[in-house]
């Protein structure tokens, strides 16, 4: 009985198990425990949440292995970590640490402005950001086993996440409406491989799980993303940059499960204290927009 690791089914299947859940950014073991206790399906271990990366500037890199391992030791749920776009050595390091998923993330400073990591070459699965369908399919073509819409991380402004979810959903719906002989040009326009374009046209969905990320700060934000067709939600700065992280984390988990029940969302939204202050994406000068990283 040969046991095979790192297959597409095992990598994509791992993301299927996270569906309907919330993945939370944490910077230490204490936050990781708060996230686990609140019902997070996984945590993303990183040294600085996007809001701090934005505030402090400088080059943002993979986190310290010590810090990642402390978080792995503290919780029993999956632990994800971020590598810079194109930095396949950071990815190898994270794989050797036994992280459960790698986020090849635009939140960190890219290491390669042309190529992303060849993700088929790894046993550990990857999640990648996308702002539109073509970008999502290019990442899947490189081996991504999960996609998240990018949004604009570290802002608490959900408008970009909304825009990206609408864009991806709209482009999928358009493909489904095309004649088969029109898919060749559609693939050219999307700058995506024809086979993946055809698969999406036939199934009406991405071939991998689609989460959403970037700017989600409240239970209602999380529910909004679920009602736009997200399979689940990443919450970065929104939780631990707020007044009462434990309660806000639990509230976002509830609203993600009962996204279609306004009464539950109302209850979850009561008395949460201050949300993260946030920055309007429109006020961000273009060079500081993270969602534009990746291509």
């Amino acid at each position: 009985m040969a046991e095979v690791t790192g297959t597409g089914r095992v990598k994509r299947g791992m993301a299927e198990m996270l569906k309907g859940g919330v993945i939370m950014d944490v910077v230490n073991a204490e936050q990781a425990k708060i996230a686990e206790d609140a019902g997070a399906v996984a945590v993303m271990a990183l040294e600085r949440v996007p809001a701090d990366i934005r505030a402090q500037g400088g080059v943002a890199r993979m986190s310290d292995p010590d810090m990642i391992q402390k978080i792995q030791a503290a919780v029993s749920i999956p632990v994800m970590a971020k590598a810079r776009i194109g930095h396949f050595v950071e990815a190898r390091v994270l794989e050797s640490l036994g992280v459960d998923y790698i986020d090849e993330s635009e939140v960190l400073t890219p290491a390669d402005y042309e190529n992303h990591i060849d993700k088929f070459d790894f046993t550990v699965p990857f999640v990648c950001g996308a702002t539109n369908l073509g970008e999502a399919l290019r990442r899947i073509n490189e081996g991504a086993a999960m996609i998240r819409s990018k949004g604009e991380a570290g802002t608490g402004d959900v408008s970009n996440a909304m825009q990206h979810m609408r864009k991806i959903g709209g482009e999928i719906r358009r493909l489904s409406s095309l004649r088969e002989d029109e898919l060749y040009v559609a693939a050219k326009e999307l700058q995506a491989p024809y086979d993946l374009v055809k698969e999406v046209a036939q199934t009406g969905k991405l071939p991998v799980v689609l989460f959403t990320a970037g700017g989600i700060a409240t239970p209602a934000d999380a529910a909004l993303m679920m009602s736009m067709g997200a399979d689940g939600v990443f919450i970065g700065s929104g939780i631990f940059k707020s007044g009462n992280p434990a309660q806000r984390a639990a509230a976002c988990v509830k609203a993600t499960t009962f996204w279609d029940d306004p009464k539950v969302i109302a209850d979850a939204s009561r008395g949460l204290g201050e949300a993260m202050v946030g920055i309007n994406v429109a006020d961000l000068p273009a060079p500081h927009r993270l969602a534009d990283r990746g291509w």
């Binding site: 690791t5 095992v10 791992m14 459960d100 550990v124």
Partner: peptide, 25 residues
Amino acid sequence: RQVDSFESDIEFADGSHELIRAVFI
């Protein structure tokens, strides 16, 4: 952990003696 997740053919005792492809995550 996830890097150890695997698939394998297993025997399931339903009397059929046919293998089942099992995905362990």
